[in-house]
Design a protein around this nucleic acid. Structure first.
Length: 128
DNA sequence: TTGTGTTTTACGACCTC
DNA sequence: GAGGTCGTAAAACACAA
């Protein structure tokens, strides 16, 4: 899929070793993850995966805007407001945090890349 | 159409507190 | 143990050819 973030982190850590050591634990010899069983959620009685409505997403976004983490109470309240399973709300927040983190990473990468390019230009000017 | 790339929803494995 | 991240499967969607 999308390897942009990995590329960015590779470049950043090349330029600034140690920057991501806390965010990116070394997974060098990562263990193989087990494949998920297909359509295990028989709880939904064969229901297909459904996109959330615009209204639901809007309310979730509003809540995410005010607080990125979700206490049990707030999760249950939100879920009943949205007519969703609390588990769906929790998953939505997990995925939203992941997207937010990627976005931040991308911004950070752009900033670092720009400043790196500026420095390279300055260096060339000084050398010439 | 349909083949293909991207986004979204959902879950398993593992980690942390 | 509950709830977090990470990696990824699979459905949904967008869209060029």
């Amino acid at each position: 899929m999308n390897h942009k973030v990995e590329d960015q982190m590779a470049l950043i850590s090349q330029l600034y070793p140690g920057v991501f050591t806390q965010m990116v634990p070394q997974q060098g010899e990562s263990k193989p993850r087990r494949r998920r069983k297909k359509n295990k959620d028989a709880g939904l009685s064969g229901a297909k995966k459904r996109k959330l409505s615009e209204e639901q997403v809007n309310l979730l976004e509003m809540n995410f805007g005010s607080e990125h983490k979700l206490e049990s109470d707030r999760k249950d309240k939100l879920a009943s407001e949205l007519g969703l399973d609390p588990r769906q709300v929790a998953v939505w927040f997990q995925n939203r945090r992941a997207r937010w983190k990627n976005k931040k990473l991308e911004e950070e990468y752009t900033k670092l890349k720009t400043s790196h390019e500026t420095i390279v230009v300055e260096k060339c000017q000084l050398e010439s």
